[in-house]
Design a protein around this nucleic acid. Structure first.
Lengths: 161, 161
DNA sequence: ATCGAAAGTGTAATAGAATAACGTCCCCAT
DNA sequence: ATGGGGACGTTATTCTATTACACTTTCGAT
């Protein structure tokens, strides 16, 4: 067993947030994208934890905590931007969004979601994606996007029921 | 390349429907489950094509075509029953439901969904699920459910753009 | 045969997720 | 300075799903 992922270990999460924001700044600067205050704030909120966050949860914080006039499109537009540039991922089975660990390159990870602590661990294993591509090839199917979302119990939650 | 799946080939689809209903009858009889008229009808509607069907599409047919008084819970309850016993699968990325090819044993397939013709091809490849289980093991993660949904172009739609 | 519990369905209301359509503002390249 | 495009605000609506409660049917136990 390899090093347990940060997502399901106690850790200084401020560091995760800072790093995610810094990487986003860098990425946007490099690609000439505008990381506006709103987009930055939404990214920060998504990174408040390793748990996927619903768009309406974000909306509630913007309205109540930031005092910002916000309606659904405000949030969804920011999320669309972040998704498009790989800064967050959408978890289809939860209708929720989670920060991306390594937005430096285009990818779609595989997600291991704990049903107890709700942490989402992102992996990027070629053994999984290759096995999908192999199966696709056997069908003559051209893959454009992969969604892999696994639900279960993370190591930590197995230990503390 | 193996035999192309029925889902993206022209075929006598009435046979698919008949077989699915027959298998459902058998399965319910064997397990002492009640395949009521409503449940049977919903299963039949889901099997009208190989395209995942939304709950509200089903609802519309029940109301307009069958003249049945139907509200959302009517449909969702039937779908819950069919899901629970493996007769249909839910496609999370589409919020839609598709008939199961082989409800004879508990399983969760992998779905290859054509973005053009919308057909969903179900596979059950141990290479995919094993690679997921391997990755999970390396995390110490206990898998309870797998969602694998691949979007792209089926062989047929690649040929006819 | 009849009773009663459990399962199934009808009904109304509501919650939750996402998008459409339109207007305004602001930045900045010409 | 100006006008064009991107970002955001606003209102309304659509689509998806669940809660809560009432009524009915089914089926086993008596």
């Amino acid at each position: 067993m390899t090093t347990p992922p940060l997502a399901c270990q106690p850790h200084d999460h401020r560091h995760c947030i800072e790093q995610a924001l810094a990487e986003a700044e860098t990425l946007c600067a490099r690609h000439g994208l505008r990381l506006t205050a709103l987009r930055r704030r939404v990214l920060e909120l998504v990174w408040q934890s390793h748990k996927p966050l619903g768009a309406y949860d974000i909306l509630a914080v913007l309205s109540e905590q930031d005092g910002r006039r916000a309606a659904p499109p405000t949030v969804y537009r920011a999320l669309d931007f972040l998704l498009e540039h790989g800064l967050v991922h959408r978890i289809a089975s939860l209708n929720a969004f989670v920060g991306c660990d390594h937005p430096d390159h285009a990818h779609q990870g595989q997600f291991f979601i704990c049903r107890q602590c709700h942490a989402a661990i992102e992996l990027e294993r070629s053994t999984i994606s290759d096995s999908i591509l192999d199966s696709a090839r056997s069908l003559g199917f051209r893959v454009e996007a992969q969604t892999v979302e696994v639900v279960g119990l993370c190591a930590r939650c197995q230990a503390t029921p």
